[in-house]
Protein backbone atom coordinates (compact mmCIF):
# COMPACT_ATOMS: atom_id res chain seq x y z
CA UNK A 1 0.00 0.00 0.00
CA UNK A 2 1.22 3.48 -0.90
CA UNK A 3 1.70 5.97 1.88
CA UNK A 4 -0.92 8.72 1.78
CA UNK A 5 -0.79 12.09 3.53
CA UNK A 6 -1.89 11.41 7.06
CA UNK A 7 -5.42 12.27 8.08
CA UNK A 8 -6.00 12.40 11.80
CA UNK A 9 -9.66 11.42 11.97
CA UNK A 10 -9.10 9.16 14.97
CA UNK A 11 -6.44 11.18 16.69
CA UNK A 12 -8.09 14.58 16.56
CA UNK A 13 -10.50 13.89 19.41
CA UNK A 14 -7.46 13.74 21.74
CA UNK A 15 -6.29 17.29 21.02
CA UNK A 16 -7.22 18.62 24.48
CA UNK A 17 -5.90 15.53 26.21
CA UNK A 18 -2.55 15.86 24.48
CA UNK A 19 -2.36 19.40 25.81
CA UNK A 20 -3.29 18.26 29.31
CA UNK A 21 -0.35 15.84 29.45
CA UNK A 22 2.11 17.77 31.61
CA UNK A 23 5.02 15.77 30.17
CA UNK A 24 6.30 14.95 33.62
CA UNK A 25 7.69 11.65 32.39
CA UNK A 26 6.23 9.61 35.25
CA UNK A 27 4.96 7.23 32.56
CA UNK A 28 8.36 5.92 31.63
CA UNK A 29 9.23 4.81 35.09
CA UNK A 30 7.87 1.32 34.59
CA UNK A 31 7.59 1.02 30.82
CA UNK A 32 9.29 -2.24 29.79
CA UNK A 33 10.24 -0.73 26.43
CA UNK A 34 11.93 2.32 27.96
CA UNK A 35 13.73 0.15 30.45
CA UNK A 36 15.01 -2.08 27.72
CA UNK A 37 16.36 0.57 25.33
CA UNK A 38 16.88 3.42 27.82
CA UNK A 39 16.15 5.88 25.01
CA UNK A 40 13.66 8.66 25.62
CA UNK A 41 12.22 7.93 22.14
CA UNK A 42 10.85 4.58 23.29
CA UNK A 43 8.96 5.78 26.33
CA UNK A 44 5.24 6.52 26.54
CA UNK A 45 5.83 10.28 26.83
CA UNK A 46 7.62 10.13 23.48
CA UNK A 47 4.60 8.44 21.92
CA UNK A 48 2.39 11.23 23.24
CA UNK A 49 4.80 13.83 21.85
CA UNK A 50 4.80 12.08 18.47
CA UNK A 51 0.99 11.92 18.53
CA UNK A 52 0.93 15.66 19.14
CA UNK A 53 3.44 16.19 16.32
CA UNK A 54 1.36 14.15 13.88
CA UNK A 55 -1.84 15.92 14.89
CA UNK A 56 -0.37 19.40 14.65
CA UNK A 57 1.42 18.57 11.40
CA UNK A 58 4.80 19.37 12.97
CA UNK A 59 5.88 15.78 12.32
CA UNK A 60 5.60 13.95 9.03
CA UNK A 61 4.45 10.36 9.45
CA UNK A 62 7.20 7.84 8.75
CA UNK A 63 7.95 4.15 9.08
CA UNK A 64 10.24 5.01 11.98
CA UNK A 65 7.41 6.76 13.84
CA UNK A 66 5.01 3.94 13.02
CA UNK A 67 7.43 1.39 14.40
CA UNK A 68 7.49 3.26 17.70
CA UNK A 69 3.74 3.67 17.86
CA UNK A 70 3.04 0.06 17.02
CA UNK A 71 5.32 -0.99 19.86
CA UNK A 72 3.62 -1.47 23.23
CA UNK A 73 2.97 -4.43 25.52
CA UNK A 74 -0.19 -2.85 26.94
CA UNK A 75 0.82 -3.42 30.54
CA UNK A 76 -0.70 0.05 31.10
CA UNK A 77 1.77 0.91 33.81
CA UNK A 78 2.14 4.27 32.08
CA UNK A 79 -1.55 4.96 32.68
CA UNK A 80 -1.32 3.91 36.29
CA UNK A 81 1.64 6.25 36.82
CA UNK A 82 0.26 9.18 34.79
CA UNK A 83 0.01 12.31 36.88
CA UNK A 84 -2.68 13.76 34.58
CA UNK A 85 -4.96 10.77 34.11
CA UNK A 86 -4.20 10.50 30.37
CA UNK A 87 -5.50 7.32 28.71
CA UNK A 88 -2.26 6.72 26.91
CA UNK A 89 -2.96 3.36 25.31
CA UNK A 90 -6.26 4.60 23.84
CA UNK A 91 -4.34 7.42 22.20
CA UNK A 92 -1.72 4.98 20.88
CA UNK A 93 -4.49 2.89 19.31
CA UNK A 94 -6.01 5.89 17.59
CA UNK A 95 -2.63 6.92 16.18
CA UNK A 96 -2.28 3.36 14.92
CA UNK A 97 -5.64 3.61 13.17
CA UNK A 98 -4.60 6.83 11.46
CA UNK A 99 -1.17 5.49 10.54
CA UNK A 100 -2.71 2.36 9.04
CA UNK A 101 -5.11 4.51 7.05
CA UNK A 102 -2.10 6.44 5.74
CA UNK A 103 -0.43 3.19 4.70
CA UNK A 104 2.09 2.77 7.49
CA UNK A 105 1.54 -0.87 8.30
CA UNK A 106 4.57 -1.96 10.30
CA UNK A 107 4.55 -4.68 12.93
CA UNK A 108 6.28 -3.04 15.91
CA UNK A 109 5.58 -5.42 18.77
CA UNK A 110 2.46 -6.89 17.15
CA UNK A 111 2.63 -10.57 16.35
CA UNK A 112 3.41 -11.72 12.84
CA UNK A 113 3.21 -15.10 11.20
CA UNK A 114 5.90 -16.61 9.01
CA UNK A 115 5.80 -19.15 6.20
CA UNK A 116 5.83 -22.12 8.57
CA UNK A 117 2.20 -21.42 9.36
CA UNK A 118 0.01 -24.45 8.65
CA UNK A 119 -3.15 -22.41 9.11
CA UNK A 120 -4.25 -24.70 11.93
CA UNK A 121 -6.06 -21.70 13.45
CA UNK A 122 -5.13 -22.56 17.03
CA UNK A 123 -3.78 -19.06 17.44
CA UNK A 124 -6.96 -17.55 16.04
CA UNK A 125 -9.02 -19.39 18.64
CA UNK A 126 -6.61 -18.70 21.47
CA UNK A 127 -6.04 -14.98 20.89
CA UNK A 128 -7.69 -13.25 23.87
CA UNK A 129 -7.94 -10.01 21.93
CA UNK A 130 -9.57 -11.39 18.76
CA UNK A 131 -6.70 -9.92 16.82
CA UNK A 132 -5.96 -12.94 14.64
CA UNK A 133 -8.04 -14.08 11.69
CA UNK A 134 -7.65 -15.90 8.42
CA UNK A 135 -7.66 -13.97 5.19
CA UNK A 136 -7.11 -15.73 1.85
CA UNK A 137 -5.78 -18.79 3.66
CA UNK A 138 -3.21 -16.74 5.50
CA UNK A 139 -3.35 -15.94 9.21
CA UNK A 140 -3.22 -12.18 9.70
CA UNK A 141 -3.01 -9.94 12.77
CA UNK A 142 -5.06 -6.82 13.32
CA UNK A 143 -2.37 -4.50 14.61
CA UNK A 144 -4.85 -2.27 16.39
CA UNK A 145 -6.37 -5.16 18.31
CA UNK A 146 -3.13 -7.05 18.99
CA UNK A 147 -1.80 -6.37 22.48
CA UNK A 148 1.47 -8.26 21.99
CA UNK A 149 0.62 -10.67 24.80
CA UNK A 150 2.47 -13.50 23.04
CA UNK A 151 -0.27 -16.08 23.50
CA UNK A 152 -0.10 -16.92 19.78
CA UNK A 153 3.67 -17.34 20.02
CA UNK A 154 3.19 -19.78 22.84
CA UNK A 155 0.43 -21.94 21.33
CA UNK A 156 1.67 -22.14 17.74
CA UNK A 157 2.75 -25.76 17.17
CA UNK A 158 4.78 -24.78 14.08
CA UNK A 159 6.60 -21.91 15.85
CA UNK A 160 5.33 -19.67 13.06
CA UNK A 161 4.13 -16.79 15.25
CA UNK A 162 6.46 -14.26 16.77
CA UNK A 163 6.45 -10.63 17.79
CA UNK A 164 7.81 -8.19 15.20
CA UNK A 165 10.03 -6.47 17.77
CA UNK A 166 10.43 -8.14 21.13
CA UNK A 167 12.43 -5.63 23.21
CA UNK A 168 14.34 -8.28 25.12
CA UNK A 169 11.35 -10.52 25.78
CA UNK A 170 12.22 -13.31 23.32
CA UNK A 171 13.58 -16.64 24.40
CA UNK A 172 16.99 -15.91 22.89
CA UNK A 173 17.41 -12.55 24.55
CA UNK A 174 16.26 -13.83 27.94
CA UNK A 175 18.70 -16.72 27.66
CA UNK A 176 21.53 -14.33 26.86
CA UNK A 177 20.59 -12.07 29.79
CA UNK A 178 20.59 -15.06 32.12
CA UNK A 179 23.90 -16.49 30.91
CA UNK A 180 25.68 -13.11 30.78
CA UNK A 181 24.64 -12.32 34.31
CA UNK A 182 25.64 -15.67 35.74
CA UNK A 183 28.95 -15.69 33.90
CA UNK A 184 29.83 -12.22 35.18
CA UNK A 185 28.58 -12.69 38.73
CA UNK A 186 30.12 -15.89 39.96
CA UNK A 187 28.67 -15.51 43.46
CA UNK A 188 25.13 -15.38 42.21
CA UNK A 189 22.89 -18.22 43.22
CA UNK A 190 19.55 -17.74 41.53
CA UNK A 191 17.49 -16.20 38.77
CA UNK A 192 14.09 -14.77 39.61
CA UNK A 193 11.74 -14.40 36.65
CA UNK A 194 9.24 -11.66 37.45
CA UNK A 195 6.09 -11.39 35.36
CA UNK A 196 5.57 -7.84 34.15
CA UNK A 197 1.89 -7.91 35.05
CA UNK A 198 1.96 -9.46 38.47
CA UNK A 199 5.01 -7.62 39.69
CA UNK A 200 7.43 -5.02 38.47
CA UNK A 201 10.34 -3.72 40.48
CA UNK A 202 10.45 -0.03 41.33
CA UNK A 203 13.83 0.61 39.86
CA UNK A 204 14.04 2.46 36.58
CA UNK A 205 17.34 1.53 35.08
CA UNK A 206 20.12 2.74 37.32
CA UNK A 207 22.75 0.12 37.98
CA UNK A 208 24.43 -0.66 41.27
CA UNK A 209 28.03 -1.26 40.35
CA UNK A 210 28.91 -3.47 43.29
CA UNK A 211 25.77 -5.44 43.86
CA UNK A 212 27.65 -7.82 46.14
CA UNK A 213 24.85 -7.74 48.67
CA UNK A 214 22.49 -9.52 46.23
CA UNK A 215 23.01 -13.07 45.13
CA UNK A 216 20.17 -13.25 42.68
CA UNK A 217 18.92 -11.30 39.70
CA UNK A 218 15.36 -10.35 38.95
CA UNK A 219 14.66 -10.59 35.24
CA UNK A 220 11.39 -9.10 34.16
CA UNK A 221 9.62 -10.97 31.39
CA UNK A 222 6.31 -10.16 29.79
CA UNK A 223 4.30 -13.05 31.24
CA UNK A 224 5.12 -16.13 33.32
CA UNK A 225 3.45 -18.22 30.63
CA UNK A 226 5.85 -17.00 27.99
CA UNK A 227 8.92 -18.43 29.66
CA UNK A 228 9.85 -21.39 27.55
CA UNK A 229 11.28 -24.53 29.09
CA UNK A 230 14.75 -23.85 27.69
CA UNK A 231 14.79 -20.46 29.39
CA UNK A 232 13.81 -22.04 32.69
CA UNK A 233 16.68 -24.50 32.28
CA UNK A 234 19.25 -21.92 31.17
CA UNK A 235 20.23 -20.75 34.69
CA UNK A 236 21.02 -24.32 35.76
CA UNK A 237 23.36 -24.68 32.77
CA UNK A 238 25.33 -21.74 34.22
CA UNK A 239 25.59 -23.11 37.74
CA UNK A 240 22.65 -21.29 39.29
CA UNK A 241 21.27 -23.07 42.32
CA UNK A 242 17.70 -22.05 41.87
CA UNK A 243 15.04 -20.54 39.64
CA UNK A 244 11.96 -18.75 40.94
CA UNK A 245 9.13 -18.06 38.51
CA UNK A 246 6.47 -15.48 39.35
CA UNK A 247 3.12 -15.34 37.60
CA UNK A 248 -0.36 -14.00 38.35
CA UNK A 249 -2.86 -15.78 40.62
CA UNK A 250 -5.30 -18.18 38.92
CA UNK A 251 -7.89 -16.31 36.90
CA UNK A 252 -5.98 -13.00 36.94
CA UNK A 253 -3.90 -13.57 33.82
CA UNK A 254 -5.56 -12.26 30.69
CA UNK A 255 -3.43 -14.52 28.55
CA UNK A 256 -3.88 -17.85 30.31
CA UNK A 257 -0.23 -17.50 31.23
CA UNK A 258 -0.47 -18.90 34.75
CA UNK A 259 -1.56 -22.29 33.45
CA UNK A 260 1.29 -22.37 30.94
CA UNK A 261 3.79 -21.30 33.60
CA UNK A 262 2.59 -24.01 35.99
CA UNK A 263 2.90 -26.69 33.36
CA UNK A 264 6.39 -25.57 32.27
CA UNK A 265 7.67 -25.38 35.83
CA UNK A 266 6.24 -28.85 36.54
CA UNK A 267 8.03 -30.15 33.46
CA UNK A 268 11.38 -28.81 34.72
CA UNK A 269 10.73 -30.18 38.20
CA UNK A 270 10.21 -33.64 36.71
CA UNK A 271 13.31 -33.22 34.60
CA UNK A 272 15.41 -32.26 37.62
CA UNK A 273 14.07 -35.24 39.51
CA UNK A 274 14.87 -37.58 36.63
CA UNK A 275 18.54 -36.56 36.85
CA UNK A 276 18.59 -36.84 40.64
CA UNK A 277 18.44 -33.13 41.32
CA UNK A 278 16.13 -31.58 43.92
CA UNK A 279 12.90 -30.55 42.14
CA UNK A 280 12.48 -27.79 44.72
CA UNK A 281 15.29 -25.88 43.05
CA UNK A 282 12.65 -24.47 40.74
CA UNK A 283 9.57 -22.91 42.26
CA UNK A 284 6.50 -21.13 40.99
CA UNK A 285 4.88 -18.36 43.00
CA UNK A 286 1.65 -16.57 42.18
CA UNK A 287 1.84 -12.90 43.04
CA UNK A 288 -1.10 -10.53 43.33
CA UNK A 289 -0.97 -7.51 41.05
CA UNK A 290 1.74 -5.14 42.32
CA UNK A 291 2.31 -7.04 45.58
CA UNK A 292 5.95 -6.08 45.98
CA UNK A 293 6.16 -6.97 49.67
CA UNK A 294 4.68 -10.40 49.07
CA UNK A 295 7.05 -10.99 46.19
CA UNK A 296 10.10 -9.95 48.17
CA UNK A 297 9.03 -12.28 50.99
CA UNK A 298 8.76 -15.15 48.49
CA UNK A 299 12.22 -14.33 47.13
CA UNK A 300 13.69 -14.30 50.65
CA UNK A 301 12.08 -17.64 51.55
CA UNK A 302 13.29 -19.19 48.31
CA UNK A 303 16.84 -17.90 48.69
CA UNK A 304 17.00 -19.15 52.25
CA UNK A 305 15.81 -22.53 51.14
CA UNK A 306 18.21 -23.02 48.25
CA UNK A 307 21.16 -21.67 50.20
CA UNK A 308 20.20 -23.98 53.06
CA UNK A 309 20.15 -26.83 50.58
CA UNK A 310 23.73 -26.26 49.68
Amino acid sequence: MENKPMKTDNLKKWDKTLASCIRCGYCFEHCPLSKYTNWESDNPRAKIIMAHGLLSGELEPSTYIAEKLFSCFFCKRCEAACSSGVELTQIFLDVRRDLLEAGFDVPGTTSITNDNCAACLICVKECPHEARSILNNVVVTDSVKCQSCGRCVEVCPAKAAHLGLDYGTSKNELNIEVSDYLKNNKNSKAIIFACNWSYFPDLQSSIIETSDNKNYKIIVNMCGGRLEKVTLLEPFLHNAQGVLVACCPDGDCEHNGSEAAKSNVLYIKNLLQSINMDPELIKLVQIKHGDKTGFQAEIDIFMEKILGNK
Binding site: I22, R23, C24, G25, N38, W39, E40, S41, A46, I49, M50, G53, E58, L59, E60, S62, Y64, I65, K68
Partner: peptide
Protein backbone atom coordinates in the same frame (compact mmCIF):
# COMPACT_ATOMS: atom_id res chain seq x y z
CA UNK B 1 20.10 9.43 16.99
CA UNK B 2 19.07 11.99 14.43
CA UNK B 3 15.73 10.88 13.00
CA UNK B 4 13.33 13.86 12.85
CA UNK B 5 11.08 12.04 15.31
CA UNK B 6 13.91 11.66 17.83
CA UNK B 7 14.85 15.31 17.45
CA UNK B 8 11.23 16.33 17.94
CA UNK B 9 10.92 14.18 21.07
CA UNK B 10 14.15 15.43 22.61
CA UNK B 11 13.18 19.01 21.74
CA UNK B 12 10.93 19.37 24.77
CA UNK B 13 10.92 18.72 28.50
CA UNK B 14 8.18 19.30 31.08
CA UNK B 15 7.96 22.98 30.20
CA UNK B 16 5.84 24.78 27.62
CA UNK B 17 8.83 25.12 25.26
CA UNK B 18 10.02 23.11 22.28
CA UNK B 19 12.92 23.50 19.81
CA UNK B 20 14.71 21.03 17.58
CA UNK B 21 18.25 19.81 18.36
CA UNK B 22 20.48 18.57 15.54
CA UNK B 23 21.45 15.27 17.09
CA UNK B 24 21.00 13.24 20.25
CA UNK B 25 24.03 11.55 21.75
CA UNK B 26 24.10 9.11 24.63
Amino acid sequence: KADPADLYIYGSDSSVHTAMPWAVVR
